[in-house]
Write a protein that binds this DNA or RNA. Structure first.
Length: 690
DNA sequence: TTTAGGG
DNA sequence: CCCTAAA
């Protein structure tokens, strides 16, 4: 259904990828290699220490409430298993390096968490109350979730952040985080792009920052702009882009910039590792897995008629592999959904652009809605380089609670269902939440990066910012999922109980989506915001529409599932990383021109050569990208100008595209001399245009 | 790794 | 832009 709609738009599904989808690439994952074992251990230790502290601190409150209930539902055996599982998981997680922030966050939040927990336990009459309370306080802890937290934008001169004076929380938490980071990571040093943000006036740090800063952009500049030297002059924003890009991909890009070796070297070797993991991720069984509608099935059944086929769902969600399957599918499903949304009237590029992982951020599942983003009037983007008091204001409308999986017996009462849901929610919250930051749907993991570096300085960019709430992974987890099944059953389920098994045949899974009440919504004056708003509300207010409902489900990272699942999953699956899609970088006209030029000369079958000829220093353009771009160019050239989207490509270029494409289709890439052929192409062009 | 093509 | 089969 969803797909159909897209296919109807006249593009034969061709440019679908333009719309962001689920995160699938592991390209960035290799960054974790940067961490030495020693450091990892240190972090790990810290994390577990903090975890332990927290645990101890909570033990009273926890045992009062949860434990009591737990005994009814689960068993100690299960608990044990889970927690050990959890530990194992944590290790891997830390090992990942990319999840540093999780662990750090854990620390810095310990105190607040405890308070929050108390809060919860004092007043957990209703899920929503409980939730909203926690979310609010939590987000203010993070200095970005308050109604109008103001963060001083970083200053270009010294690259440090000045926290708003009025927000001690921010200062405090950040400080903690930073200290940890410094202790653990500074000695080794991060690569380029990890400028320190320190509140303590540590001259060492500053010097380092200066050094990195001054070398980084410059060196990358020279090499990064092969096509258009005037690009540097042309606009500050472009400068900023490059700055951003250079720092975004950290050492990877930088490294490749520096190397002048062509073949094979521009792609970091670690991609191989990523590839392997990716293969794991996308291995065949996804494809034979249940169809998308499982989502709907599960939902509809769970909401209204959980009586129907309990086993099916059971199978779906409690077999680790299948479980992942459906998760994956669901993710994709959501992605599609959001596309429909964009098709259905959202024109803003930034909106369409905010995607996937960001499925969280964007309309469908949306973790957070931003509004009122603004920059101080006097300083435009350019000025922000010089101005000392450029601010970036974030304001978050609401957070949505991450997806919950709940397993209840069919004969459970509504009351008990409520209770269970409450417990599940409480469990998540108790474990602590993180706030994730997404830019263009890409998760920004480097907590040390400044807003400036991240590109969050002007309003346009702010449109693409999102925040997510993510359950904390590192904790000793709770019986998040309170199953009232007897323990043996859980055990059975783990071992792939056949559907016909007599054991407790009435248990079924319920997937619930909890939307926070939008009580605190303020009025938005900004149009873009209104768009966001529209979407959310429409989703929130149409809970009965199954499609909408599905969209409202918030796909959560695999790890979350681990935390929430009542059943230990396959250890292998713990390795699953939160994959991120590359950020979309539309080709500029300049780039298109270079591409056309190169293809005219080299033909359409030599993308690697094209890459080196025209995009050698644009490391974010792979030959596959170029090939794809050519594909779309040809397509674009063939459709009517009205149907074209994005930055308009000059007709002249499109003509050249068609001509070259025609030429090279005929002369099936007989590689003679480039020059010669180019002449041929040019001739052909002239012929066609006259 | 690169190419080619589907999604 | 992602993924993959083939080359």
């Amino acid at each position: 259904m969803v797909m159909k709609k897209r296919l109807d738009n006249g593009f034969s599904g061709f440019s679908n990828w333009t719309v962001p989808r689920g995160p699938r690439s592991l390209r960035k994952v290799h960054r974790k290699k940067d961490f030495e074992d020693g450091q990892i251990c240190a972090i790990e230790l810290l994390a577990s220490l903090a975890g332990k502290l927290l645990q101890d601190g909570e033990s009273t409150a926890c045992s009062n409430t949860s434990d009591g209930d737990r005994s009814v539902i689960g068993t100690n055996v299960v608990k044990e298993e889970r927690s050990s599982e959890e530990k194992a998981f944590k290790v891997e997680c830390c090992d990942g390096g990319s999840s540093q922030s999780c662990d750090l966050d854990l620390e810095e939040k310990t105190d607040q968490k405890q308070n929050l927990n108390k809060l919860q336990y004092v007043d957990n009459n209703t899920v929503l109350d409980c939730t909203s309370v926690v979310v609010n306080s939590n987000s203010s802890d993070e200095a970005c979730g308050d109604v109008k937290p103001v963060i001083h934008k970083t200053e270009f001169e010294d690259y440090r952040t000045k926290p708003e004076e009025g927000s001690p929380d921010f200062l405090e938490t950040t400080n903690t985080g930073m200290n940890i980071v410094d202790e653990e990571h500074e000695p080794k040093g991060f690569g380029i792009g990890f400028q320190k943000i320190t509140h303590s006036h540590n001259s060492k740090d500053l010097k380092k920052s200066y050094g990195k800063l001054s070398t980084m952009p410059n060196s990358s500049f020279k090499t990064k702009l092969p096509l258009s030297t005037d690009a540097i002059r042309s606009s500050f924003s472009r400068y900023r882009n490059y700055l951003k890009l250079a720092s975004r991909d950290d050492d990877e890009k930088f490294r490749s910039n520096k190397s002048s070796i062509h073949s094979n070297s521009y792609r970091p070797p670690s991609r191989i590792a990523g590839r392997r993991i990716r293969k794991l991720l996308n291995s065949k069984h996804w494809k034979v897995a249940p169809k998308l509608k499982d989502c709907e099935v599960a939902r509809s059944e769970s909401i209204g008629e959980e009586t129907r086929n309990p086993f099916r769902k059971r199978k779906l969600y409690f077999n680790s592999e299948r479980y992942q399957d459906s998760l994956y599918k669901r993710k994709r499903f959501f992605d599609r959904s959001s596309m429909v949304n964009s098709d259905g009237g959202m024109s803003s590029e930034s909106v369409t652009n905010s995607p996937e992982k960001s499925v969280h951020i964007d309309k469908s599942s949306l973790a957070a809605i931003l509004h009122g983003a603004s920059v101080s009037p006097s300083s435009g983007q350019q000025a922000s380089f010089l101005s000392k008091d450029a601010h970036v204001k974030f304001s978050i409308r609401s957070f949505k609670v991450p997806e919950l999986f709940i397993d209840v017996p069919e004969n459970a009462t509504v009351g008990s269902l409520k209770k269970i849901v409450l417990e599940a929610v409480t469990a998540i919250l108790k474990d602590g939440l993180h706030v994730g930051v997404l830019v263009h749907g890409k998760k920004v993991r480097d907590d040390n990066r400044t807003l400036l570096q991240t590109g969050l300085t002007c309003k346009d960019n702010l449109d693409t910012v999102g925040f997510t709430l993510e359950p904390n992974l590192v904790h000793n987890t709770t019986p998040a999922l309170c199953s009232e099944d007897p323990p043996q059953i859980l055990a059975c389920e783990m071992t792939e109980l056949p559907p016909s098994s007599p054991v407790n045949p009435v248990s079924s899974s319920v997937i619930l989506d909890l939307a926070l009440p939008n009580h605190s919504l303020t009025y938005s004056q900004n149009q873009d915001e209104n768009k966001h708003e529209l979407v959310t509300t429409s989703i929130d207010k149409l809970p009965d529409n199954s499609l909408q409902d599905c969209k409202a489900l918030v796909p959560v990272p695999e790890m979350t599932m681990e935390a929430l699942a009542a059943v230990p999953l396959n250890p292998k699956s713990k390795r699953l990383e939160v994959v991120q899609r590359r950020t979309r970088r539309p080709f500029s006209v300049t780039e298109v021109e270079a591409l056309v030029q190169a293809v005219e000369e080299l033909g359409t079958g030599r993308w690697r050569d094209v890459k080196f000829r025209a995009f050698e220093n644009a490391d974010h353009r792979t030959y596959v990208d170029l090939k794809d771009k050519w594909k779309t160019l040809v397509h674009t050239a063939r459709i009517s100008p009205q149907q074209r989207r994005g930055e308009p490509v000059p007709q002249e270029l499109l003509d050249r595209v068609l001509a070259a494409h025609a030429y090279w289709s005929q002369h099936q890439a007989k590689q003679h001399g480039g020059k010669h052929l180019q002449a041929g192409v040019v001739k052909a062009i002239e012929g066609s245009s006259s």
